[in-house]
Nucleic acid binder design. Structure first.
Lengths: 114, 114
DNA sequence: TTCTTATTTGGCAATTTAACCAAATAAGAA
DNA sequence: TTCTTATTTGGTTAAATTGCCAAATAAGAA
């Protein structure tokens, strides 16, 4: 990898890292439907407000969500819709992994009943 | 988030985490074209063999790549082709971020020349 | 068997990440 | 201004990640 390639893959990795956390994936899922305040997301997630606020700032810095202040509340919304396809692919991987697991299980169960 | 939701988002996050590293993204990119041995990838990346081997095992455990031994060498190949669309989306985010940066720059440069 | 090449595993040090609490800040309402 | 609500920031601690070295393992060649 030369310097340019390193820069490119680091830039990609930084965005993917921003998504690589259960709470942040949940947030992305929620924001697909509608904008939400920090408070609403905090309640849904069930963590400390400061924790959720920090998750949101990670997503914002990565350019995945954007925020808009209305009164004292801050509404967050999804900035990049293609993130959805993204999740679809992850589901494919999970499905494939699960199928592999099932095959292992069915194999062993068969042997046991024979 | 209830227990099932937590499980779901954790499963997704685990796969995304496996991709969230520059060297591993590079590996995925390389494997799109053809299968590669640990040695080949190690040379391309320019890190320790053990480091690359561990990156590959992270990708393998996540179900993203699979391996096949031929003689003393181990060939790794991409297991889930949809990972490509995935990267496409990441590029969109980067592009959007870059455009935002450019706007900031053009704004300031204009002001300065006025 | 012994030697060589290719890869994986174990272990350690350095860095990064994540969660909570407490304190600071922002915007209105009283 | 003072009070209240909503959010962010700072700080601390625990856990996870990464990279390299050294050693172990695997497969074939001599």
């Amino acid at each position: 990898m030369n310097q340019n390639e390193i820069k490119l893959y680091e830039a990609r990795a930084n965005i993917i890292k921003a998504l690589a956390h259960p709470s942040r994936l949940f947030i992305v899922d929620m924001l697909q439907k509608q904008s939400r305040t920090v408070g609403e997301l905090t309640e849904m997630i069930g963590a400390d407000t400061s924790t959720v606020s920090k998750h949101l700032s990670v997503l914002k810095n990565a350019g995945i969500v954007e925020d808009e202040k209305k009164g004292t509340a801050v509404f967050y919304s999804l900035k990049t819709p293609c993130i959805l396809n993204f999740i679809g692919c992850i589901e494919e991987v999970i499905e494939s992994n699960t199928k592999a697991q099932l095959e292992i299980l069915s194999c062993c169960r068969t042997r046991r009943t024979v």
